[in-house]
Design a protein around this nucleic acid. Structure first.
Lengths: 209, 209
DNA sequence: TGTTACCGATAGTTAGAATATCCGATAAAA
DNA sequence: TTTTATCGGATATTCTAACTATCGGTAACA
């Protein structure tokens, strides 16, 4: 297909497709002349992946480029994993989190094998600092229960990865799972919140909360 | 304290504090003259909350204003909950998700009491569409297991809410839990991923994945 | 053979989030 | 009691990300 069809089938304007090509998110088509090129289903799938990473997963174009490069590369999976992890949220400066927050977070992850500069560990510690910085207290084990939920999700991630054979499929699922997993979880959590609050506060006579 | 001290204690520049005041995120100080004002600890805490919502939780300034207004208001809690939910991610146009995705997501939430236009339900369906749209298959129950994890987290959210007595504290924990819960979960999940992958792929001789 | 579509390069737009500058006070230090 | 530094409020400017529009020179199609 040519540019116009790629645009209409993907639902993305020609100008934006060109932008993605300039930004090296999308490879060029197969040139058939000095100013003509053909595109295939791979391009269409790539555009869908780009949209998933940016619009659904919330990645910036720069972050999307990094993870797409990691998928395309022949890097070992752990490196791809790490690139995906670093792309889903910007780095937290380790000096901005308190040691108290870090030790609380480390207590949640007791028995876990996590390196000190794991970006998730720092992000969790920053949440702890924010929570306590506004005068809140974890009265009902909120942090601990989130750690249990996160462990469940991470097990699902790893099993899904194990279900893939080819390196390309593994790399894609690592990236997609890491990026879209956050979005999926937050959506399902919002639905579960509505479910549980309607259960618990089901209104015999519209009870005020 | 006056502006300079509020700035240095919060770590935010005077210009930015003025910006927050203009944007109605932060109330004015107590005027002591036509061009003088005093600020208290409430202002400091409010700035910390703003920073938590925007920098840690990733809200835009406009979204932060909406949830802060909800906290300040005397709205019933369910309304505050809904405002918080709608602020953590922009609305998904219901016509952009397939009915197939919706039915799959509804199957995950079987027995849950969730309205059709719950934003989380639509967001989860969009993740499903993205996943299948790039040719991936849920080979190991990834979606179902995420639903279980989300239910755990939502239970923790509700219990944490129940542990508060005052309406103001409840409203704040609803907002903070909704906004920071996503960030906390994604951080802990990243740490858990490192833990589990090091467990499963622990390298006797640096085994390639 | 003329209109439409194409490629690639360059320039312009829009929105969000600050930053900077000015202005007439006022308060604090010398 | 003068400086001298700050203050609050209003307005204007900057910066970045993500597009979007235009242009010059072909190619394909009716």
């Amino acid at each position: 297909m040519r540019m116009a069809e790629l645009s209409s089938r993907s639902g993305v304007t020609v100008a934006t497709i060109k932008f993605y090509q300039r930004e090296n998110l999308l490879p060029s088509g197969v040139r058939t002349g000095p100013n003509q090129a053909l595109y295939g289903d791979a391009h269409l799938g790539r555009i869908r992946l780009i949209l998933g990473l940016t619009e659904v997963g919330g990645l910036t174009v720069a972050a999307a480029r990094r993870v797409l490069e990691a998928i395309d590369s022949e890097l070992p999976l752990p490196e791809t994993f790490e690139i995906a992890q670093h792309s889903v949220s910007e780095a937290v400066d380790p000096t901005t989190v308190t040691t108290d927050a870090l030790s609380h977070v480390d207590a949640l992850m007791q028995g876990w094998h996590v390196s000190d500069d794991n970006p998730g560990r720092l992000a969790a510690a920053r949440v702890f600092d924010t929570f306590t910085g506004i005068g809140q207290v974890d009265a009902a084990g909120w942090f601990r229960r989130y750690a249990a939920a996160a462990l469940l999700a991470a097990e699902a991630d790893i099993d899904e990865l194990d279900a893939r054979i080819e390196r390309a499929a593994k790399a894609e699922i690592v990236v997609v799972g890491t990026v879209l997993g956050d979005t999926l979880f937050s959506g399902l959590r919002r639905a579960a919140q509505e479910h549980l609050s309607s259960l618990r506060y089901a209104a015999p006579p519209a009870s005020e909360l």
